[in-house]
């Protein structure tokens, strides 16, 4: 079993009122110095078997067609190693499938 993480964020040009509401609440809670907050989603996928190029290509497809709506969101895929460190998969590593 290996863990692959997919982080999904709204594209920079898309307004994020939820993030803004969080940011505006910070000074009231005594947290100063945070100029911007953007809120996203994190998916932790437990993968059966090896996380090889084929598995990553499938995960890329799943992220692109389902976990993220690429009209409004970007995503990053990261593979967790034995120490729990998340290593981003370079975008060109798995052949871009679909779209």
């Amino acid at each position: 079993m290996a863990r692959v993480v997919v982080d999904v964020m709204l594209k920079p040009e898309i307004l994020d009122p939820q993030g803004q509401a969080v940011q505006r609440a910070l000074p009231r809670l005594g947290f100063e110095g945070i100029s911007d907050v953007r809120q996203g989603k994190r998916f932790e996928l437990e993968v059966e078997g090896a996380v090889d190029d084929a598995a990553l290509a499938r995960i890329h497809e799943l992220a692109e067609t389902f976990l993220a709506n690429t009209v409004i969101e970007d995503f990053v895929i990261k593979v967790e190693d034995a120490e729990g460190v998340e290593n981003p998969v370079t975008p060109e590593a798995p052949a871009k499938s679909g779209s």
Partner: peptide, 8 residues
Amino acid sequence: AMLRNTDL
């Protein structure tokens, strides 16, 4: 696409 209303 459709997103959360601006005023939430």
